[in-house]
Simulated assay, not measured.
Amino acid sequence: MWIDGRKGQKVQQLKSSIWFHFASLGEFEQGRPVLEAIKQQYPAQPVVITFFSPSGYEARKNTPLADAVYYLPLDRAANARDFVNAINPVMAVFTKYEYWYHFFNELHTQHVPLYMISGIFRPGQVFFKWYGGLHRKMLKLVTWFFVQDINSKHLLHDLGITNVTISGDTRFDRVWANAQQPKELPQIAAFKNGQKLFIAGSTWPADEQLIAGLITQHPNWKFIIAPHEIGEDKINGLMSLLPKESTIKFSGISNLKSDSSCLIVDNIGMLSSLYQYADIAYIGGGFGAGIHNTLEAAAFGMPVIFGPKYSKFKEAEDLVEINAGFSINSQDGLNSVASMLMNDEAARHAAALTAKDYVAKSVGATNTIMAYIKERH
């Protein structure tokens, strides 16, 4: 899909546009508050969205927030020149990690303002290595950085880059807005049926092994697992781990029984609304490349549990520090943390309030970014 999607792509000629680029679906949701604010501020201006990966493009290729959605062409000088000349952006907004030399250089050459939002930098990144000269050159092509924290600002200042504002992370704005007006899911309410609910979201096989080990210990709780991958083989493999007689799939929820205690979500797109029904959340990915989005669950006010690989995620580190997030690295670790939260209502309630308060106090990045943009456009 990554290759074929780019092969037959024809870019529509526009007199002007505002260009948003996202790596994937997660970054789209992260930058969405700014995208929506831009649409509201400049309603007559066409919006072009590009994605690097199929997971973002396929999920949002028909989004009403854009006039055109494309795969980002390969980062070559001719491709960059042709693409920018076709869409004629008056500004470009890139999110978090996306740095593409030829596209940045073409925007700079054509004097198109380039804004990096929700940027975050760490000493181990290539920008700060002795061999990172080309990457440092890319940083100099950005018009303005809106970064998540003061450490990122200091790292950029060390490189002589001072066009930086600490705005925070726009994901907080997105998850908070979602938590205020979530989509109601009556099937989930019927499944929960007034009982306590443990939701495991964006799980991978290593996570699912642990969750399966936990389920049998807590017969009075309901469990929902929303795996990261929903291919038939993956779902069947997950089903084989769980109690057969009491497990159902969401696609078969019409067969819901009173003793159904475990639900597998075999579709994409429900997770951000699912969390409103949960009492505890487990976030997957922490035994692989890194954990998925902890903030969606935290915004609804609940403790979040995740695996050991979370050091690249500032919000997860923050949640651990304030006792609203809990990292585990084994079955015993999960059993211990989950049992504590499940059996001690006061501890669970305290962690839930702390998580929600953390998100509430962290909103506002979009307003900071928009204040700067409105002054200049």
Rank of each mutant, 00 (worst) to 15 (best):
K257D: 07
R136T: 06
L35W: 00
W100M: 04
V320I: 13
A289T: 13
G133W: 12
D4F: 15
F300M: 08
F103R: 01
G168L: 05
N105V: 02
V337Q: 09
E29L: 09
Q148S: 10
I38L: 09
P182A: 05
I253P: 00
S167F: 01
V69T: 13
N335S: 14
S258P: 03
E321V: 05
A316L: 07
S362W: 03
H108G: 05
G252C: 09
A177Y: 00
F145M: 03
P182E: 09
G124D: 15
G133A: 11
S339T: 13
L238M: 08
D233Q: 15
V48N: 01
A206F: 04
Y275G: 04
K183A: 12
A360C: 05
G364T: 06
N329R: 13
I264S: 04
G132E: 02
G333M: 06
Q45P: 02
D169P: 04
F146A: 03
H102Q: 14
I248M: 14
Q13T: 13
S24N: 12
S55I: 11
A299L: 06
Y310R: 11
D259Y: 10
P64G: 10
Q276F: 04
E184L: 09
V320N: 11
K183P: 01
M91C: 08
E232F: 04
Q180A: 10
A350F: 00
V175D: 01
M340V: 08
G56V: 05
L256D: 03
K10I: 13
